[in-house]
């Protein structure tokens, strides 16, 4: 266990070192941060003076060493745009992103498990086929489009009059397809509950939850089909195995077989994939947050790129790298708990 943790920590350090080097190497391609800091009519001399002040005229190696020296003391520099330490800026934006990921994860867990299990137990039922069909559609629509369609349907609202309204069925169909709208389409709203530090939560008020609905659903829409299919496939495989047959022969109830014995083994690969996916989901939030003007790290990162806010870009990449390493470590630990036959060691088995 200790060897395992030591290995992971050194891995994390290596990952962050590599990220910082790469981020520094590409900064020339990111453009000139001064463009966002001064007006168009400011003379070149003035610009040079500011560049000197910021240390942008030093050779890349000098800049990197200065950065690395500060980073070792926990200082990742100041954001040009926010005029604050980058870690502080990220700490302010991270809770919003984490809440979005939590919201999406909850949707995924509570929908994918029952649907996946159902589709595995009753593969021929029309409902299973319906779910599989929808999930194929879901997986192939980009999140950007999903988000905009969701906003149109549930935030702005759509009045449908495709069917003759003078007939009962036409009226019914029109009403069926017409949506009212009214769900918030941007931001986190005003009713946030302060938990601790920089964490203001939207989970404890109606307004906050309402603001979470559309962004979480569209973020979940990318991963949900994947998990439904994964759980279904794994479950079907497990149901064929000998111990399940034995349990059936022994006369255990179907519920006990499916949800206790079969599901437990189904979840093993799902946890592994899930851990990796949570990391990816943090990355996907860039798109979702942009569409919903969600004040999280994804939107912050995208804006930092357009503003060439290099310190913030570097810090963000390092923090995300760290999140990836941490989630993978946690997944491995959880894996050990669920399946005691897996041993955590410093070396590969």
């Amino acid at each position: 266990m200790l060897a395992f943790l030591v290995q992971r920590i050194s891995q994390a350090l290596l990952v962050m070192f590599v990220i910082s080097v790469i981020a520094f190497a590409i900064q020339d391609g990111l453009g000139d941060p001064l463009q966002e800091m001064v007006g168009m009519s400011v003379s070149e001399e003035e610009r040079e003076a500011i560049r000197d002040e910021l240390g942008l005229n030093d050779p890349m190696v000098v800049q990197y060493l200065r950065f690395a020296g500060n980073a070792l003391q926990g200082d990742l520099g100041n954001s040009y745009f926010y005029s604050k330490p980058t870690l502080e800026v990220i700490a302010e934006h991270l809770p919003a992103t984490l809440e979005l990921v939590i919201g999406a994860s909850l949707i995924i867990v509570f929908l994918s498990v029952p649907i996946g299990v159902y589709a595995a137990i009753r593969p021929q039922a029309w409902l299973s086929k319906f779910f599989m069909g929808v999930s194929t559609v879901g997986i192939s629509i980009p999140v950007f489009l999903t988000a905009i369609v969701l906003i149109q349907l549930f935030s702005i609202g759509v009045a449908v009059n495709w069917f003759p309204s003078d007939t009962g069925w036409g009226q019914w169909l029109n009403d069926f397809f017409t949506t009212e709208g009214g769900l918030p389409s941007y931001g986190r709203g005003d009713n946030l509950t302060h938990l601790f530090g920089t964490w203001n939560s939207g989970f404890f008020s109606e307004g906050g939850l309402m603001h979470l609905v559309l962004p979480s659903v569209s973020l979940a829409s990318i991963m949900l089909p994947l998990f439904i299919r994964l759980i279904r496939a794994e479950m079907m495989e497990v149901l064929q195995s000998d111990y399940i047959r034995y349990a059936r022969a022994k006369g255990l109830s179907a519920g006990r077989i499916n949800f206790l014995h079969a599901l437990k083994n189904t979840m093993l690969p799902v946890i592994t994939v899930g851990g990796v996916q949570i990391g990816i989901m943090v990355a996907y939030t860039i798109l979702t947050e942009t569409v919903f003007q969600w004040p999280g790290v994804g939107l912050m990162f995208l804006e930092a790129i357009t503003r060439s806010d290099i310190p913030l870009i570097v810090a963000y990449l390092m923090v995300v790298g760290l999140i990836f390493v941490i989630t993978n470590t946690v997944v491995d630990l959880v894996y050990g708990l669920v399946n005691p036959t897996v041993k955590l060691t410093g070396k590969k088995a």
């Binding site: 905009i148 906003i151 389409s185 941007y186 931001g187 942009t290 569409v291 919903f292 003007q293 939107l299 804006e303």
Partner: peptide, 8 residues
């Protein structure tokens, strides 16, 4: 509120 994305 700043909303950068036009459609939003």
């Amino acid at each position: 509120t700043p909303i950068k994305e036009n459609a939003t």
